[in-house]
């Protein structure tokens, strides 16, 4: 995941990866959600936020597919 920060706010986020549909959707939704947010707000986003947008029935075994981009983003934002 690549994040562009302007004055402490996320101005753009992109991702590249080889992943399943759920993980790709999560990364896609997350990239859109973080734009315009402050660094702290973006880092605070969780699985619940992404699932709220995805509106999909994600089973417990696939929750890591949802959370992987969130974990990576949090690392990127330090």
């Amino acid at each position: 995941m690549q994040v562009k920060l302007d004055g402490g706010r996320v101005s753009a986020a992109r991702f590249a990866g080889d992943s399943c549909a759920i993980c790709t959707a999560s990364a896609d939704v997350l990239s859109e959600m973080v734009e315009g947010r402050s660094r702290a707000e973006a880092a605070a986003l969780g699985a619940g936020d992404v699932l709220g947008v995805l509106q999909a029935d994600v089973r417990p075994t696939r929750m890591r597919c949802v959370t992987l981009p969130i974990t990576v983003l949090a690392k990127a934002l330090g």
Binding site: C20, A21, I22, R62, C65
Partner: peptide, 8 residues
């Protein structure tokens, strides 16, 4: 297809 999606 990612293998996880195939399995699902």
């Amino acid at each position: 297809w990612h293998p996880h999606d195939v399995a699902a």
